[in-house]
């Protein structure tokens, strides 16, 4: 069973986000790391291939600059090959263009039995890309997967719902999006990191995939203003001296809640 995982590479979330003054979009230059939301997908893919007993895990990514650090992390975890679509003309792409590009990348790799994405990326969080990829490829999809099993040609998913979960079955090939916490992503071993440097990682442009880049000009949306929201003021902060619970009681009393 071959699986393609969509992995987004993002600026380190530990450093505060900033907007580009000329485009008002999130800055995505410099070093990019593997989005933690996609580490779950990579781990899930590795586990599914291991239990199927055959097949490989590939990763695809789209980024306006040629950054591959995040993809190397996925290769170090155990994916065997990567395809990066990198094209300055893709800067400012909307979710739809991103999905078209990733779908074309999956096809370029020869398709897959299963395509895995995260339910939402950490920096963009539109949460629509996986389902858009499925539609571009004409495939069924199961979003918000919190448990995944493959039984022959049947995919069995526990799909998170507002009040619990649904058991969903689907034939392969299919697209799934996995929620955080579904599996425990492995840390790449030292050997994994060394091996990853030698694994094939192709870089292609949108043109190579015959997708028309639709960056800023053609995204169908344009940022018109960025404003500061009304800030919520911090109130009193006190150190607990063993009696601070009393302050909470008084606060609640004041609001007539007790």
């Amino acid at each position: 069973m071959n699986i393609v995982v969509c992995v987004k590479q993002i600026p380190d979330p530990a450093s505060p986000g900033a907007l580009d003054a000329s485009t008002n979009a999130l800055k995505r230059d410099g070093k990019l790391i593997l989005d933690e939301s996609d580490a779950y997908g990579v781990e899930m893919a590795l586990q599914l291939v291991a239990s199927a007993g055959s097949g490989e895990v590939f990763v695809v990514s789209m980024a306006p600059n040629g950054e591959t650090s995040g993809m190397r992390t996925a290769l170090a975890m155990g994916a065997v090959k990567g395809l990066l679509v990198s094209d300055p003309a893709l800067a400012g792409s909307d979710a739809l263009t991103t999905a078209k590009v990733l779908a074309a990348a999956v096809t370029k790799l020869g398709g897959a039995d299963l395509i895995i994405a995260g339910t939402e990326s950490s920096d963009g969080y539109t949460g629509t890309v996986p389902e858009q990829i499925a539609e571009c490829l004409g495939l069924p999809s199961v979003t918000f997967a919190k448990k995944v099993k493959v039984d022959g040609q049947v995919l069995k998913v526990d799909r998170q719902s507002e009040t619990g979960y649904d058991e969903v079955e689907c034939s392969l090939p299919a697209v799934i999006s996995v929620t955080a916490g579904v599996v425990e992503p492995r840390y790449p071993s030292f050997k994994g990191i060394m091996d990853a440097k030698k694994k094939p990682l192709d870089v292609v442009t949108a043109g190579d995939l015959a997708v028309t880049p639709a960056g800023w000009a053609a995204a169908g949306q344009k940022i018109v203003s960025v404003t500061q929201a009304e800030a919520r003021k911090a109130g009193t902060v006190i150190e607990d001296d063993g009696e601070a619970f009393g302050k909470i009681v008084a606060f609640l009393e004041n609001l007539k809640l007790i």
Binding site: L96, A99, Y125, T126, G127, E131, E135, T143, E162, A219
Partner: peptide, 23 residues
């Protein structure tokens, strides 16, 4: 902005070739 809304919107955006604005 929930499961079913998001999925429907995503599928429809490809069918109509329209962008989406979320959140």
């Amino acid at each position: 902005q929930n499961y079913e809304g998001r999925d429907t919107m995503a599928r429809l955006s490809v069918k109509l070739n329209r962008t989406v604005l979320t959140n």
